[in-house]
Amino acid sequence: MSYQLRREEAVDVAGLKAMLEHSPGQAAQAILAAAGQGVVEAQLLLGQILLDGRGIEADEAVARRWFGIAAQGGSAMAHNMLGRCLEHGWGGDQDVAQAAIHYARAADVGLDWGLYNLGNLLATGRGVPANQAQALLCYEKAAQMGHAKSMNLYGRYLELGIATAAGPARAVRWYRRSAQAGDFRGMFSLATVLLERGQAAEAEPWLARARKEGNVNFLKSALATLQTGGAPMAAYVQAYAEELQQRVAEETSTA
């Protein structure tokens, strides 16, 4: 039975998000009704649950359309999510140049995720000309807003002196903030610097958390770093290698 939303009924989007936790099917029907009535936040939320298949059958193409509708309604996050769809080819053709346009629209109004995603394209020259100075600016702005992933990347630019004067002490402070905010890459960045300083006791809990919380791609890159990091990092290679092997086996078994 479809959910009927009275036109005079106020839409509590926060309540709909909470409903997803215990009644995802009912929540999806309510979200669909609100989206159909033009509630921009509900349109954005509908796109997300269609991507995730949460309470409703997953459909990347329809999700992409709803993100586009919400973006037209002025949602910065919808611009960001439409950019994600375009960047990765979710629900349609891949178009990284168009993704950059939507990330920039989100970044222009100060959305941290828009800044982060635009920074990634600028850093790699995907969809836009590579521009490390602009990438640094994006990461710095998002980091100052508390965006954990950007904190780590801003720290990396400071550590390596990319498009700015090297500032190792400042880099460590940003790595620490990223780690404390829950980013596993920030945890690993902090831990490797601590190991190089001979502070293994402080580094080890961060290494363990990063190993458990990181995804397969992270584990691959982290393992390569540990393998080439010399004596301070050699003791942790086996644990990361075993974790990677286990994760790959799990992904293969569920594929």
Rank of each mutant, 00 (worst) to 15 (best):
L118T: 00
T164C: 10
N120M: 13
A169T: 11
A165F: 04
G155S: 08
L122W: 02
L122P: 01
Q132S: 15
L160C: 10
N152R: 07
A135K: 00
T164D: 05
T164R: 12
A142H: 03
H147E: 14
A166H: 09
L118N: 01
E159C: 04
A130G: 13
A148E: 03
Y154C: 06
L158C: 07
G167C: 04
G167F: 03
L158M: 09
A142Y: 01
L121V: 04
A133N: 14
N120Q: 14
L153W: 01
N131P: 08
N120V: 07
L122Y: 01
R173E: 15
Y139E: 04
A130L: 14
A143S: 06
A165T: 10
Q134D: 14
L121T: 00
Y154A: 05
M151L: 15
G127D: 01
L158A: 06
T124V: 14
A166C: 09
Y157I: 11
M151R: 02
N120L: 10
H147W: 14
E159D: 09
L153F: 12
A169W: 10
R170K: 14
L160E: 13
M151H: 05
V172N: 02
G146N: 14
G161E: 09
H147K: 11
L122C: 06
Q134A: 11
A166L: 06
K141A: 09
L160I: 06
E159K: 08
R126L: 12
Y157V: 13
G161A: 05
R173W: 13
L153N: 03
H147F: 15
M145C: 07
M145A: 10
A133V: 14
G146E: 12
N152W: 01
A133Q: 15
A130P: 08
I162N: 05
R173V: 13
N131T: 15
Y139D: 01
A148W: 00
G127V: 03
K141Y: 12
A130S: 12
M145L: 12
A142R: 01
L118F: 07
